[in-house]
């Protein structure tokens, strides 16, 4: 009881800090947020929730959320799942582990999905699969590019084989969108693993990643046990993937909006549209 009061007092008296997972520096939360959740001491890109990420890249008031009322259910009566769902909803204020919608980046419209690792490690269950499938179907119908921010522990075990089937379901929609000639950009963020890596994370026309993001299929410990040797420090990092030819580039968070904007512009089907959006962007920065 006394401890709890002391703890609360401490929170009031001293500003809330977040410890950098890399250099262990204690950084005031507000300062960290202003710096896009990038550690000002060592440059480590800390995890960012989905809403902040949308705010980072979207033109002001341009984001329109879609499919937000989809709710997961514990259809297998899986031990602890209902609790997990409720807790995740409570702590994040979100319905599920992915947010979908449309937005504009420097005036250019795109469909987006953004995964939020705070929600059961953004594991992929029915709702995550359904929302991402729908955003690809919507983007295909409306001739929009898709930008996807991935972060996930993989498939959602609590939904058994149904979660595995989401990998095929989403991939089918990605394929249709792709065959219709539309652009799909993925931005791999920390951590992107398992079934998400083994499906839509690696299916982008252009695959970007944030610095030092963990990206892999199997977990590091499992790989270590299988390989029976120590793995290099950079194993399964964005840098490791770039070196092995599996991603197009690593983009620091501060440059992300500009990079995405340029990529959208470079894929405009008519030259005039591209010039128009460049002009708009320039007038905004001027």
């Amino acid at each position: 009881m006394l401890d709890a009061i002391r703890g609360r007092l401490r929170n009031v008296l001293t500003p809330e800090t977040i410890q950098c997972k890399s250099c262990k520096a204690e950084i005031p939360k507000s300062k960290l947020k202003k710096n896009l959740m990038v550690c000002p001491e060592c440059g480590t890109h800390l995890r960012m929730d989905a809403r902040s990420r949308i705010a980072l890249i979207a033109d002001k008031n341009s984001f329109k959320e879609m499919f937000s009322t989809l709710q997961s259910s514990d259809f297998f009566n899986f031990p602890g799942y209902q609790d997990k769902l409720e807790k995740a909803q409570e702590t994040t204020g979100e319905n599920e582990a992915v947010i979908c919608g449309t937005l504009k980046i420097n005036g250019q419209e795109a469909a987006v999905f953004v995964m939020d690792s705070r929600f059961i490690m953004a594991s992929m269950g029915s709702v995550v699969g359904e929302k991402i499938t729908r955003i690809f179907e919507y983007a295909e119908k409306n001739s929009l590019p898709v930008i996807g921010f991935t972060a996930s522990g993989g498939a959602r075990m609590q939904e058994g084989v149904v979660s595995l089937m989401q990998m095929a379901k989403v991939s089918g929609a990605v394929k249709k969108h792709s065959d219709a000639g539309h652009l799909y950009i993925t931005v791999l963020t920390d951590p992107t693993t398992g079934g998400v890596t083994a499906s839509f994370a690696m299916q982008g026309d252009i695959i970007l990643a944030e610095p030092k993001a963990l990206v892999g299929f199997a977990g590091r410990r499992v790989v270590e046990q299988t390989t029976k040797s120590k793995l290099p420090d950079n194993f399964q990092t964005a840098e490791f993937l770039l070196e092995h030819g599996f991603i197009d580039n690593i983009v620091p968070r501060a440059e992300l909006t500009k990079t995405l904007s340029s990529l959208l512009c470079l894929h405009k089907k008519k030259e005039a549209e591209c010039n128009d959006s460049i002009r708009k962007a320039q007038s905004r920065t001027a």
């Binding site: 709710q71 359904e130 499938t133 089937m165 989401q166």
Partner: peptide, 11 residues
């Protein structure tokens, strides 16, 4: 594969 998934939706 499109059919897979169990969820509810409040419209």
């Amino acid at each position: 594969f499109r059919c897979f998934g169990v969820y509810s939706e409040n419209k």
